[in-house]
């Protein structure tokens, strides 16, 4: 793994999200608690809705376009909907910097 520093946890509002732009599309960073952050692909498998604009609740996000709900941990769509978003390893260091695994970002397919 190669951990890349992409910002500070306080740059993301609590129960909010920010984007990381990459060569292979945008990754959403979701802050679910004071010191908890998840990284997933930003595009909803339904019709491409921007997940980082959705409402974050528990460890889930609701797509802003048609309300599909995704687990930020597993990437699975919840309830009756079927689909999956990619998730990426991300961690916080003691100073609250957000580190994302650049290898995992690089390995995904250009979707």
């Amino acid at each position: 793994m190669s951990w890349l520093d992409i910002g500070h946890i306080d740059d993301i509002p609590l129960r909010g999200a920010r984007l990381v732009r990459t060569r292979l599309g945008c990754v959403g960073l979701f802050r679910t608690a004071e010191a908890e952050v998840f990284a997933t692909s930003n595009a909803c498998p339904h019709k491409g809705g921007p997940l980082s604009e959705g409402i974050v609740h528990g460890r889930k996000v609701t797509c802003p376009l048609h309300n599909w709900v995704f687990s930020l941990e597993t990437g699975e769509a919840m309830g009756a909907d079927e689909g999956r978003i990619a998730t990426y390893p991300v961690r916080l260091d003691v100073a609250g910097r957000i580190l994302i695994d650049a290898d995992a970002l690089g390995k995904r397919s250009a979707a």
Partner: peptide
């Protein structure tokens, strides 16, 4: 704006 822009990183 995006928190970070990695498109500018050298290609892996």
């Amino acid at each position: 704006a995006p928190l970070a822009d990695l498109t500018l990183e050298a290609a892996e």
